[in-house]
């Protein structure tokens, strides 16, 4: 069970972050946060950019934990797979949430 969890935790976290941040984008449009600006940056852009960076930090922390001795899973095969899915989760978070952080927020 612990092995399955360590293998799936990063992709599952990415899934939750993806849904959450795109949901946040819809909410920021509904609340007109894209028209409220602070120092030339819209509130929606600042919020989504911060959420994206926080998501990357969360995935990176999880990956570091999977590499660290204390949290590293037992067994060479499970350890290798867990780290691979950890890297996949981190890259997926950077890649798939990049558009929502940098492009125009609301149509």
């Amino acid at each position: 069970m612990t092995s399955v969890l360590s293998i799936l935790v990063s992709p599952l976290l990415w899934l939750a972050l993806f849904s959450g941040i795109y949901g946040l984008q819809g909410l920021s449009c509904e609340l007109d946060l894209d028209t409220t600006t602070f120092a030339g940056i819209s509130a929606a852009r600042a919020l989504l950019g911060a959420a994206w960076l926080a998501a990357i930090a969360l995935q990176a922390t999880l990956l570091a934990a999977l590499h660290a001795g204390r949290f590293s899973p037992e067994g060479a095969f499970v350890r290798w797979i867990s780290r691979a899915t950890g890297w996949t989760g981190l890259v997926a978070t950077i890649w798939t949430l990049f558009p929502v952080a940098v492009t125009s927020t609301c149509g």
Partner: peptide
């Protein structure tokens, strides 16, 4: 391709 697609998407807005 992703970068180009995003740039094009911005231009079409």
């Amino acid at each position: 391709l992703l970068g180009y697609g995003l740039w094009v998407g911005e231009r079409l807005l």
